[in-house]
Design a protein around this nucleic acid. Structure first.
Lengths: 248, 248
DNA sequence: CGAAGGATTGATTAGTCTCAACGCAAGTGG
DNA sequence: CCACTTGCGTTGAGACTAATCAATCCTTCG
């Protein structure tokens, strides 16, 4: 059923799962669900982590706040993404998770998670892969913020989200959902909202992209990837049944 | 013996290991060793990862290079640190590892690694913890580069390295080894070498720190942590037998 | 002693931030 | 159903952080 699709699709970018595997995931995702309003926190820095959260619907984000209020968004989650696999070991969260849009998620307890891993080595592997990709994305963001210009950074973010959505079948030809406000893009890229605005306008003027009505239209993905110096290797999609590199 | 100390100490920040555990680690670290000259690559982006690398002596770094040559250093490794736990799953590296100073490291094969984990659940847990800390550090770096000023960023890096070295017993009262050049600090913080120079001078003028002869002298850790807004929670040292927060 | 790597300095510029409005659309309450 | 609010995008002017370019200096080391 549809609820499971996103996680299955996500993991399928790495291995193809058997029906039994799917069943196992399906069951785990049904146990404990939560619906959050936009902006609502899922878990806050300092709290004790108790579940692995799986996004079923909507976008979420990981963020960190400095003592004086400055906020850095550390990653976005889309349907199928797992937040903080195996985080149980830690005493407390060093960052927060919150909903961007309305979010439906499944909570998996430590015991359930353990069970899944022991039941299916293939899923265990896929979860490992997913975790490694999450870290790789974090590294890419560090690189982006550290080295890329504002223009390149935003372009890179757009490329990443587009490609990630494509692997879970959530893109059209050249467009996808894109519920982020310019403020959120700013907090994710280490820029100000004003500068994001000007930069996005520039990208629009140059015919690269358009963002409106919570949708992103990518007029020329090739060109966008080029200016962003986007190399999708860090998403490690090469093993799955999906395309990982650009369109034709 | 001394070779093992650093990894044992590193993991001991999370759990205390039994003599048997130590023995297991000791054995694994003895199998395959490598010595690298300063600047030498350990493994390069694009290559197939075959080992878990454990730093026994010296400092190493993880970095990423953009198509046009801009380089971002993503993290530093000090003795006891593991590079890329469980990375075997992936087809190719999305980043490179290289020696900063001369480095002695141990290579652990997939099979050996598997064995360790199966032999000792406590070590397995500790390795998980170590991996989670690595990711947490990456997130903190993203935050640092995205939100902190040059001054704060450098201060934060210094705090982090000092605290990490302290947990493996490699600090004096208020100083520690610090083999990074200003260029390397620049690549790690997303600044230019020139600006790092001026900023470090400022920190020196203000009596916070001094860097010379490959050593860092921290005159006032409290103050340094304050300006960096350094919160050590992300290092997750709370469970071990070591201090995690500031000095006296 | 010469070479090389690293640190330092100065002058100038570019990119991004800050502050302050304003516009527009959608939602809300009276 | 209209006035008000709220959130988000847009614009302008000016300030400032950090980058750039180009030397110069210092240390170390073969």
């Amino acid at each position: 059923m549809e609820l499971v699709h996103s996680l299955t699709l996500h993991l399928s970018a790495f291995v193809s799962l058997s029906d039994a595997d799917r069943e196992v995931l399906d069951k785990a995702l049904r146990k404990r669900a939560r619906i959050l309003a936009p902006r609502q926190d899922i878990i806050r820095e300092g709290e004790k982590p108790r579940f692995v959260n799986v996004i079923l619907e909507g976008w979420a984000q990981r963020y960190k706040q400095l003592a004086d209020g400055r906020r850095q968004i550390l990653s976005f989650f889309v349907p199928g993404d797992l937040c903080d696999t195996n985080v149980f070991i830690l005493k407390s969260m060093d960052h927060s998770l919150s909903a961007v849009t309305q979010v439906r998620l499944a909570e998996i307890s430590q015991r359930e998670f353990q069970e899944i891993i022991e039941t299916s080595p293939r899923i265990a592997q896929a979860l490992w892969w997913s975790e490694l990709v999450t870290v790789a994305i974090q590294r890419e963001w560090t690189t982006s913020i550290g080295q890329r210009t504002a223009y390149e950074r935003i372009a890179h973010l757009l490329c990443e989200m587009f490609v990630r959505l494509r692997t879970i079948g959530r893109t059209q030809e050249r467009s996808c959902e894109f519920p982020l406000t310019q403020s959120e893009i700013a907090d994710a890229t280490g820029l100000t909202q004003v500068h994001v605005n000007r930069t996005v306008q520039e990208m629009r003027r140059e015919g690269l992209i358009e963002i409106r009505n919570k949708r992103l239209e990518v007029h020329d993905l090739r060109a966008l990837m080029a200016v962003a110096m986007f190399n999708p290797n860090y998403l490690h999609l090469e093993a799955g049944g999906h395309e990982c590199i650009a369109p034709e």
